[in-house]
């Protein structure tokens, strides 16, 4: 990455300080997916697989236009198709590009125990570094979007990199490049948010989508992939987009207080026995022969 634009600001499972901690670039990168102009053509799926050099995989017909039920370790970008009947009788065929959301507060990174297996760059990209990945899949546990996927053969976890390699070289991600309708945009978070808000406002004012809105969930500190939804009051209908995603509370508990509590109690344990030794010392271990005989006799032996 030398010479590029990426600077690490957070590292998973890392004990010491992080050089780029708390830094932010002039702009954070962001991908905007406007579901209201997505036609589900899957060009992004193909671009993703081809750019990342993964092989084609056999699929089977599953009563849907969706390529496969879920993203896979080597298939990071999937359009989810949903036929949805609204309460008012209107019908929608929803298509949502599903991929890593690149959370500002990434649950995967939080959960990951392996030093350097997950990093967050100062531009917001959350990237897996497979050479440090230990395959524990804690990231799977930590992710509220069900994104990291495990490769059984290499025992490593993979997900969308937001084309950190391309972005580092000043290019847009491959999916953005391939999108024919322009429903995908890439730029700074501020710009993308402004664009998304303007589009949502336009939808509310000029179309029948009165609930149009932007999906940039606060629960994970906002994301570096944001959506414009026709109906932001019901993100679940877009292939199970969680309404209020957050790093699971239990993961926060586990990676926060419990970790310290555990460490402290171990420390106290060791200190406790040491103090005990100093205060009381070891127990008697031997007896004189005479005492043993006396003992034997007392016992009526």
């Amino acid at each position: 990455m030398a010479g590029g634009t990426l600077q690490i600001k957070a590292i998973s499972g890392h004990a010491g300080p992080v050089a780029g901690a708390n830094t932010s670039r002039d702009y954070d990168v962001c991908k905007l997916v406007d579901t209201t102009t997505c036609i589900g053509c899957k060009a992004c799926e193909v671009a993703c697989v081809e750019w990342n050099g993964y092989p084609f995989r056999p699929t089977s017909f599953d009563n849907t236009y969706q390529t496969m039920p879920n993203t896979e370790w080597n298939y990071w970008n999937l359009i989810r198709f949903d036929e949805h009947e609204n309460a008012d009788g209107t019908f929608q065929w929803l298509m949502r590009k599903d991929q890593c959301m690149h959370c500002e507060d990434p649950g995967c990174l939080k959960a990951c125990p392996a030093d350097g297996a997950i990093v967050q760059y100062s531009n917001g990209i959350v990237d897996f570094q497979q050479e440090h990945c230990i395959g524990c899949q804690y990231c799977v546990t930590g992710c509220p979007f069900d994104i990291p996927k495990f490769n059984q053969e290499t025992k490593k976890v993979f997900k969308c990199t937001l084309c950190s390699d391309r972005v580092n070289a000043g290019l847009e991600p491959a999916c953005i490049k391939s999108c024919p309708t322009g429903c995908l945009h890439f730029g700074s978070k501020d710009d993308m948010l402004a664009l998304a808000q303007a589009r949502a406002t336009q939808l509310r004012e000029h179309t029948s989508h009165r609930n149009a809105g932007v999906y940039d969930p606060e629960g994970v500190g906002g994301t570096h992939v944001i959506y414009v939804l026709h109906d932001s009051s019901n993100p679940e209908k877009y292939g199970g987009l969680p309404k209020n995603p957050r790093v699971p509370i239990l993961v926060q508990l586990w990676k926060g207080p419990l970790k310290w509590l555990g460490g402290l109690s171990m420390m106290f344990g060791v200190m406790g026995v040491a103090i005990h030794y100093l205060r009381f010392g070891p127990k008697e271990a031997e007896m004189k022969d005479a005492d043993i005989q006396k003992e034997d006799r007392n016992r009526g032996n």
Partner: peptide, 9 residues
């Protein structure tokens, strides 16, 4: 194969 992957049957 890529197209077949997207619409297999």
């Amino acid at each position: 194969p890529m197209n077949v992957q997207l619409q297999p049957e």
